[in-house]
Design a protein around this nucleic acid. Structure first.
Lengths: 130, 130
DNA sequence: AACAATAACGATAATCGTTACTGTTATTAT
DNA sequence: ATAATAACAGTAACGATTATCGTTATTGTT
């Protein structure tokens, strides 16, 4: 098993991700953490992101292209802008979370991923200006 | 704009996908369609999959790794097995679909993707046998 | 039916996000 | 302090997807 020892790199990665409200890609996070630790290797970033996901400290957001990462593990959903590709938080009440019906299934359902798609306010404005 | 002319390759791809109940990856589909058209190029497959997605004739299922494709466009959800990685249909009633709460959002929500995760019946059985 | 325009093709190279490998460094228990 | 090894930096490899390019096939027009 891994990630038993502490490391400055992993702390910096997790702290950086926790301090931001966007949902950066690995590269965006890499460039940002490099401002603090210029020697950070991309392999180290990916290795730690994987470990942090496995241990449930961060969440991976998938939609075909690059992965995005989120350090907020409280229940909330996301919207991805069809236009700019960014992920945004979509705060939902606990009641809404509970309202998602868990289907009958001849197996075991453990979790789900719910991502909305649309146009963010920023991109909608940009379109109006044309 | 593209995909204005008909093509034997695209028809074969779409028909193949419609005839199956699994949710194949591009490579799985490629190998299958090649049995009908051995000269089919992988580039042609990807180009047509993209076009078919854009025109809404098929659906792309994303979860980090390879993409999976589904020719069923009627509303239904999916479960991905944590164990074998396969996607399965999860038929849901129209009422269940309507039960998903659309959050308030300062932009425009157009669609959503809901994927459940768990263990399929097949993998659960395999685990029991150990 | 022949022709011209070009969408679509097959083959293959390039791209790019991610993972694996290798020798070195840093953490931790003894 | 020492030894064991997790974790690192640097870099090569991987794999799914996309782009390029010369050729083929479809389609509207003579």
């Amino acid at each position: 098993m891994q990630q038993t020892r502490k490391s400055r790199q992993r702390d910096a990665i997790l702290n950086n991700l926790r301090a931001r409200c966007d949902h950066p890609t690995a590269m965006e996070l890499y460039l940002s953490v490099r401002e603090e630790i210029p020697s950070l290797s991309l392999g180290t970033l990916y290795r730690n992101l994987k470990g942090l996901c496995d241990s449930g400290k961060i969440i991976r957001l998938s939609d075909g292209g690059e992965e995005h990462y989120d350090a907020c593990t409280a229940p909330h959903w996301h919207i991805k802008c069809d236009c700019c590709g960014r992920f945004y938080d979509l705060p939902v009440s606990p009641e809404a979370v509970r309202a998602v019906p868990i289907p009958e299934y001849d197996g075991e359902i453990r979790d789900y991923s719910l991502i909305f798609f649309g146009v963010c306010a920023h991109c909608a404005c940009a379109a109006d200006e044309k």
